[in-house]
Simulated scan of single mutants.
Amino acid sequence: MKRIWIGLIILIVLASGAALWWYLREKRVQFVRYEEFGIDMPVNYDIHGIDVSKFQKDINWHAVKQMQVDNIRISFAFIKATEGITRQDAAFKQNWERAGKAGLIRGAYHFFYSTRDPIKQAINFRNVVDLTSGDLPPVLDIETSNNQPAAVIRSTAKIWLEEMEKAYKVKPIIYTNIHFYETYLGNEFDDYPLWIAHYYQKERPASKRPWLFWQHSDIGRVNGIRTTVDFNVFKGDSTDLAKLCIP
């Protein structure tokens, strides 16, 4: 019996060591400076993208798509569509059409306010965004509390998300930062794909919650856009990204 216990202890120690090795391996990110993009890029990832709004002004999407430095090119773009119950991004229609024609995988996002009627916010998004096969799921951009308690933020966000799932038959993506997620959302939303904002620090988002997209910089540069732009990576390969899109 003593030998059995010793054997079990050895196995536990070895398993713990292996888990720690994988954890440390997962944490290491290799950044390489690319002057063409104006930022240090996390080259551990194969799939790179940007997110834009009217503030990027007139975008030459073909130039965005054609730019490639080493193995890095822009494969997807999240585009702001709506905000609150009435606001619609002035550049959305043009960006949406031109990004699609250029061959980029597209996603549309809604800037959410927990102080506004979530049903009306969902209607605002549906009136603007026509998602089709090959597009990314709708995105809930939720990053401000507006002095609302966590319970209100969770309940209103849940309504918007459920309305999107009814309308587009796919589970929406949540965009936020780690602090907001852990403070206001919590494990009630762990089933939703997560797009996490985390930049100005040379490391992966320090979150126990698995994420699919990482917004790692807000000062990147890319051909076809005259302003700085947010850069993102996808945690997976092209097959994984295709599976996430609307069938």
Results as ranks from 00 to 15, higher is better:
6 I>M: 14
7 G>N: 13
7 G>D: 05
8 L>E: 05
9 I>S: 12
10 I>P: 01
11 L>A: 15
13 V>H: 08
13 V>P: 04
15 A>Q: 01
15 A>K: 02
15 A>W: 06
19 A>I: 14
19 A>C: 11
20 L>H: 07
24 L>G: 05
24 L>E: 14
25 R>P: 02
27 K>A: 15
28 R>Y: 15
29 V>W: 15
30 Q>R: 09
31 F>P: 03
32 V>D: 13
36 E>A: 14
36 E>D: 12
37 F>K: 03
38 G>K: 04
39 I>C: 09
41 M>W: 08
43 V>Y: 13
45 Y>T: 07
47 I>S: 02
51 D>S: 04
53 S>A: 03
54 K>H: 14
54 K>C: 12
54 K>I: 01
57 K>P: 00
59 I>H: 00
61 W>Q: 08
62 H>T: 02
64 V>I: 05
64 V>D: 00
65 K>D: 06
69 V>E: 10
70 D>T: 02
71 N>A: 07
71 N>P: 05
74 I>Y: 02
75 S>N: 10
78 F>H: 10
80 K>A: 04
82 T>R: 00
82 T>H: 01
84 G>A: 04
85 I>D: 00
88 Q>E: 00
89 D>V: 00
89 D>S: 06
91 A>M: 09
91 A>R: 01
94 Q>M: 12
94 Q>Y: 11
95 N>H: 09
98 R>T: 00
104 L>E: 04
105 I>N: 06
107 G>W: 13
115 T>W: 11
118 P>E: 01
120 K>S: 11
123 I>H: 05
125 F>Y: 03
126 R>A: 14
133 S>K: 13
133 S>D: 15
133 S>V: 14
133 S>G: 15
135 D>Y: 07
137 P>Q: 09
138 P>G: 13
138 P>S: 09
140 L>W: 08
144 T>C: 07
144 T>D: 14
149 P>C: 03
153 I>Q: 08
154 R>G: 12
157 A>H: 10
157 A>G: 07
157 A>L: 10
159 I>F: 14
159 I>A: 08
160 W>F: 15
161 L>H: 08
161 L>R: 02
163 E>W: 05
165 E>F: 02
166 K>L: 13
167 A>Q: 07
169 K>F: 13
172 P>K: 06
173 I>W: 06
175 Y>G: 12
186 G>W: 11
190 D>F: 09
192 Y>I: 14
192 Y>N: 06
197 A>M: 10
198 H>C: 11
198 H>A: 13
199 Y>I: 05
200 Y>K: 14
201 Q>F: 13
203 E>V: 08
203 E>I: 03
204 R>S: 15
205 P>F: 12
207 S>V: 14
207 S>G: 11
209 R>F: 13
211 W>R: 01
224 G>F: 00
226 R>G: 00
227 T>Q: 01
230 D>G: 04
240 D>R: 04
240 D>N: 14
243 K>M: 07
